[in-house]
């Protein structure tokens, strides 16, 4: 297999009793990319990641992580991957730096503790007990633990679940730093913004099955009819030309006249809109272009809302 592949999954199926958690799933993750697995609770995200980490054995199908088979070469994989579990707990009465040193000692390749603490912004907390850390700080410690062996691939299971917006942004920054350092990141999330902002490619998973796999931009572009929206306001009432490529779907009057239009080709629609307004001797007061989001794509593909 190619050296460029960090992860290869072919026809993976994993069952718990009668429940099929992952169903005939195939995917590959290229080295150096941030790969997102997006789906609602129960979609099979955690099962997939746990199979890759070697925590669970697949029922059928082939799995390779850095070219190694988790069924036979688990220790080789463990040496070279970093893992952040969905929830992380530690012995209460250990200090941050002690936990890092403890886990670092299990590996042949060892990262510098000071660098790690800096990367997750826990320098000031290095001598604090676990009991004295906030939820966000524990999450960051868990992330640092995933990096103690300078891993080639980092698996993050819902890394920002339950964190406030500011802490989440900090973590995103850290994850982007990992990518710049040449590492492969595979993360699961049910935050659409997270997938859209961070990921090079996103796998949309639902009911254990692959719904889509592409870059966020392509997923959004391919979603039918929802690729972009224009919101604009005019000084006087506006009526679109009959042959216009955009379609007004909402209008309201609030001081000025406000419209929302669905467009296919954003550039062309803007030109048409501006010339139509000029032609009608109207005046453009405001113009906003909003791209469709992954959320729109997700709803369209699965027919479900992702948030609980």
């Amino acid at each position: 297999m190619s050296d460029q592949l960090a992860v290869l999954v072919e026809d993976l199926t994993k069952r718990y009793g009668r429940l099929v958690a992952v169903n005939q799933l195939s995917l590959d993750v290229t080295r150096g990319e941030i790969f997102g697995v997006l789906g609602p609770n129960g979609a099979g995200k955690t099962t997939l990641i746990e199979v890759l980490e070697g925590l669970r054995m697949p029922d059928s199908g082939a799995v390779r992580v850095l070219g190694f088979d988790p069924r036979r070469e688990l220790d080789m994989i463990k040496e070279r991957i970093g893992v952040q579990l969905q929830s992380s707990s530690f012995f209460r009465k250990l200090r941050v730096v002690e936990v890092l040193k403890q886990f670092r000692s299990y590996y042949r390749k060892r990262a510098d503790i000071d660098d790690l603490l800096e990367m997750v912004a826990l320098n000031e907390k290095r001598n604090s007990f676990i009991t004295d850390l906030s939820g966000g700080q524990r999450q960051r410690l868990a992330l640092a633990l995933a990096l103690v062996n300078e891993p080639d691939i980092i698996f993050l299971d819902e890394p920002t679940a339950g964190l406030d917006a500011q802490v989440r942004r900090q973590l995103w920054h850290t994850i982007e730093q990992m990518k710049s350092a040449g590492k492969t990141v595979l993360l699961t999330t049910h935050y659409i913004e997270e997938a859209e902002r961070l990921c090079d490619r996103v796998l949309i998973l639902d009911g254990g099955q692959r719904i889509a796999l592409d870059s966020p931009a392509n997923l959004i572009a391919h979603a039918r009819g929802r690729s972009a929206r224009l919101r604009f306001a005019t000084a006087r009432p506006f009526s679109p030309e009959p042959e216009a490529t955009f379609k007004v779907i909402e209008s309201s009057k609030n001081g000025s006249y406000t419209y929302t239009a669905q467009v296919g080709d954003t550039g062309r629609s803007i030109v048409e809109l501006v010339s139509a307004i000029e032609h009608q001797k109207n005046e453009l007061v405001e113009l906003q272009i909003s791209r469709a989001t992954l959320e729109d794509v997700f709803v369209e593909l699965t027919g479900k809302e992702i948030r609980e």
Binding site: E53, L55, D75, K78, E79, V83, L85, S87, S88, S89, F90, F91, F103, Y106, Y107, L145
Partner: peptide
């Protein structure tokens, strides 16, 4: 207690 809190699980991730 450590198992119930998921502390022990973390060790399984490491080559130890």
């Amino acid at each position: 207690g450590a198992r119930e809190q998921g502390i022990l699980r973390r060790y399984k991730m490491a080559p130890v």
